[in-house]
Write a protein that binds this DNA or RNA. Sequence first.
DNA 1: CTCTTGTCGAACACTGGTGTACGAGTTACG
DNA 2: CGTAACTCGTACACCAGTGTTCGACAAGAG
Lengths: 198, 198
Amino acid sequence: MTATRAKVPAKRADAQRSIEAILDAAIRSLSRNPEASVSEIAKTAGVGRVTVYGHFPNRADLVEAAMTRAIADGHAGLEAVDLSGDPREALARLIDSSWQLVSQSRSLLTAAQDVLSPGRIRELHAGPVERVEGLVERGRAEGVFRTDLPTTWLVGVLHSIMHSAADEINAGRLTPDVAADYIAATALSAFTPPSLAG
Amino acid sequence: MTATRAKVPAKRADAQRSIEAILDAAIRSLSRNPEASVSEIAKTAGVGRVTVYGHFPNRADLVEAAMTRAIADGHAGLEAVDLSGDPREALARLIDSSWQLVSQSRSLLTAAQDVLSPGRIRELHAGPVERVEGLVERGRAEGVFRTDLPTTWLVGVLHSIMHSAADEINAGRLTPDVAADYIAATALSAFTPPSLAG
DNA sequence: CTCTTGTCGAACACTGGTGTACGAGTTACG
DNA sequence: CGTAACTCGTACACCAGTGTTCGACAAGAG
């Protein structure tokens, strides 16, 4: 439903470029440091601090916009992953493409958590999460994933294993190249029904 | 090696009580909110803000002291857990007693992470972690835990599953009473060798 | 009992952030 | 080309926290 008789004169190309740059800078800055100040973000965007406030009423709104954008981008990339075939192999493929995404935006997520309500955060993640849930459900129906624990729990575990991997890398105890394999191996184990051979 | 010719006159009973109260209040306050201010902690302790600075040079030192104490307390409780017998059952027992500890001090950990170096945090956790590592090593030696992934990775995964459980509880998707069971079920699966029946 | 140690509140300087206001200059759009 | 939209820097008010200092006052130790 596009607004009839739009009173908004539509942003100038100039402004759109700024907004783009700011959003981009916000994602990069917040991914480095979740407490990045508005000044910092503005500087990264090559823009004055005031300009930022011209487009976003306050820091919280900016963070939310950045988060929304980052998730949309990531989600789009993930949709390309083929989830058909053996759920276990599909899961491995999904992990392969999503884990780096997760690890990169960890700090951004922290920033969002500092400023947004837990409910809002969950809303923003709804899209990506649904896809994983769908896959897990199918695996359960086909008997290759366990059914003695709730689907949401399993999805949560997968998520947390990825975060764990990011921690291990930060601590220098794990190298990025093997991370995806470790995650997949661990998750597959964790998802396997208790009474089924691997 | 106690200092010969102690120049320090030893704290007064008065002061010791204060320190105790402050540490206690710090643990409680920071467990509620990782960004609790010194004023807040002082108030909780029933003590003036200045008094806090009388005993701890700055907020960071206070947080570190609180963290150290909380870990020491928790560690002491954990040492009581019997780790003999089947490693799988021992692991379940250990999870049972440690998981609530972890979930309670999550926020305190966050506070510490804001202020202390990652290395320092790891040092503080060394004690408790060693115990888990020992158990996992034994399980590997006995063939009931997988050896295709490093011990440190497995321990990290266990840790992160606990955090995941805490998240789920916060989100209202999990009730505290079943949490320990979920964690144990998941971790045991994750630790099982890929080619072994559950 | 006395003297040292500790406590308290109020006040202060300082820091680092947020959000607003202004005015001059620039840039796109029609 | 003219005007409205946008940008920029500087400056400001404001807030919340940290860490320090002061002087008066309690309380424990010897």
